[in-house]
Every structure is written in structure tokens, then in C-alpha cells.
């Protein structure tokens, strides 16, 4: 059981986390826009997350927090 918290307001939508995720459960939001105008990244299936933190490690803006 893992928990991924994304600070959507600070996300710049670069998709590096999406590239890094081995479970392919990250996408850019279709519906949300943050105040800088980016579609932030969001998780599609929290139960599939293995808490490997690859997404957090590649995030240049350090907006992802992982708990297990």
C-alpha cells in the first residue's frame, strides 16, 4: 500500500515522472490546470504503486512525496 502526494500547484507538467514510472500509472491531468497554466501530473491507480520513488527522484521540481 503506497501513497503518492503530488503538489499539483508546483508541477510543471514535464512528464519526466511519467517516463520514469515502471507501472505506468502517472498521466498529465486532462481536466486540471494549475495557476502557472500547466496540466499537473496525477496518479491513475494508487493501488498499483510500488513506492519505488523513481518518479520523485526524476522530478526536477521535487513536488512528489511518497509514503508506504
Amino acid at each position: 500500500m503506497a501513497k503518492v502526494t503530488i503538489n499539483e500547484e508546483l508541477c510543471k507538467g514535464c512528464e519526466l515522472c511519467i517516463r520514469a514510472c515502471p507501472k505506468k500509472i502517472l498521466v498529465l491531468s486532462d481536466t486540471k490546470l494549475n495557476s502557472k497554466g500547466y496540466h499537473p501530473c496525477e496518479i491513475t491507480d494508487m493501488s498499483a504503486c510500488i513506492a519505488c520513488a523513481a518518479c520523485a527522484r526524476t522530478c526536477p521540481d521535487v513536488v512528489i512525496e511518497i509514503e508506504k
Binding site: K3, K12, P60, D61, V62, I64, E65
Partner: peptide
């Protein structure tokens, strides 16, 4: 639950000015 990954206190709360996907942020971390 235990934290697997969180932002280090050695980085300030300042929002980085770098372009989306710029790796400077990773190096800073």
C-alpha cells in the same frame, strides 16, 4: 505509513525558476 521520499529540508520552499523538465532541479536536490 513511513515516508519513502520527501523533499529535503536543505532545499528552501522557493519555487525554482527553471523551465519544465530542466535537470538543474534534480542536481540541486
Amino acid at each position: 505509513m513511513t515516508k519513502v521520499f520527501q523533499k529535503t529540508k536543505l532545499l528552501t520552499d522557493e519555487v525554482m525558476h527553471y523551465c519544465p523538465g530542466c535537470t538543474h532541479g534534480i542536481v540541486h536536490r
